[in-house]
Computed example of a mutant assay.
Amino acid sequence: MSEAEARDEVLDTDAGEFPLLDYRLRRGGREWTVLHVAAILTDEDETRALVRKTNRLPYGVSLWPSAIALGHEVAVRAADFRGRSVLELGAGVGLPGIVAASLGGRAVQTDRDELALHLCRRNAERNGLGAIDHRLADWTEWAETGRYDWILAADVLYSDSLHPHLRRIFETNLAPGGRVLLSDPFRPDGLRFLEGLEAIGWTVTFSKWEVGDEATPRTIGVFELTPPTGPR
């Protein structure tokens, strides 16, 4: 996993201009590229982003390790996405959904922040994927009625208050036979949410990815969620 710093592009915002970096995900002989303002790869990076926030940029314009892990997971499961409908929640810079769309998925990417969605759209075009549908959407005021074969979400379980909204989206917007791929750095809140789904009949399996520097990698879980069969 390499990080190429390309400072020839900027993100122009009300808070000023911010240099954009270029992350390149390489897998199976293919390459995807996304612009972002910062890569949150270590615990120190995360603390600085969440606790010592010094600008007014939304978190979604940074590249988080869970998005990198989810992008790799999608890439190694190419056949699962070909011809399938895909909904990405909290897309941010858009890496997982971009990978899914490039593998033949029909992708809709959503985020509640206009600036993040602008960068997400820009990254889709950067990868030759102008057909991706981008929608401004808030989980707490969710109006999306479409049903999807896959729902993708990276690092969305950070707050207990959001869990009922996410569960409702999973239950409402998954097509019959659909599944969720959700990545998380094993946060306690996230694990409680997953345990709660298992308690009501969801099947939860996971794989692990190591993201970041070899000396101090972040361990990320990518969880596949299958809803219970029969009425919910």
Rank of each mutant, 00 (worst) to 15 (best):
T172G: 06
L152S: 02
V108T: 15
E195N: 10
G178A: 12
L115I: 14
Q109L: 15
D111M: 07
H118I: 00
N173V: 06
S161E: 15
N127H: 07
I132D: 04
G178S: 13
A101L: 03
F170Y: 15
D160G: 00
S161V: 14
P185S: 11
C120A: 15
L174D: 07
C120G: 05
A116N: 10
D149P: 02
S159W: 09
I98M: 10
R126H: 13
D160H: 12
R126T: 09
A131S: 15
D160V: 07
D155P: 10
S161R: 15
E114F: 07
R147Y: 00
H165P: 04
T110P: 08
G190T: 04
D160S: 12
I169F: 08
R106A: 14
T145G: 05
L95A: 05
T172H: 13
I151F: 06
E141A: 15
T110K: 10
A175T: 07
E114D: 13
L191F: 01
D189V: 13
C120Q: 11
G105A: 09
L182Q: 09
Y148A: 01
L197C: 02
N173L: 06
G97D: 03
L162G: 14
W142Y: 06
S183A: 15
D111P: 09
E195A: 14
T140D: 13
P176M: 12
Q109A: 12
E195Q: 12
L191A: 04
A137L: 14
S161K: 14
P164A: 09
Y148G: 00
R106F: 14
D133S: 04
G190D: 06
D189M: 03
N123C: 04
L157Y: 09
G146H: 08
D111H: 10
H134G: 03
R106N: 13
T172R: 15
G190N: 06
T140A: 14
A175D: 13
A143F: 00
L166Y: 14
L157A: 15
G177V: 12
D184G: 02
G94V: 02
P185L: 09
V99W: 03
I169C: 11
H163E: 12
L103Y: 11
V99T: 06
H165I: 01
A116S: 15
R192G: 05
G178K: 12
A154G: 13
R168H: 05
W139F: 03
A175W: 10
R135S: 04
H163G: 06
D155A: 07
W150L: 06
D189R: 13
G128M: 01
G196P: 05
T145P: 01
T145K: 04
G196Y: 03
T110G: 10
E198W: 01
N123V: 04
A107L: 13
G104S: 07
G146T: 11
Q109C: 15
L152T: 00
W150I: 06
W142V: 03
G104A: 09
P185Q: 11
A175Y: 10
F186W: 14
R192D: 06
A101W: 00
W142Q: 03
I151L: 14
V156E: 09
A154R: 07
G130N: 10
S102A: 09
G128S: 02
E141H: 08
T145A: 13
F193Q: 01
H118N: 13
L194K: 08
N127W: 03
E195H: 09
F193S: 03
G130F: 01
L182M: 13
Y158M: 04
G130E: 12
W142K: 02
L182R: 08
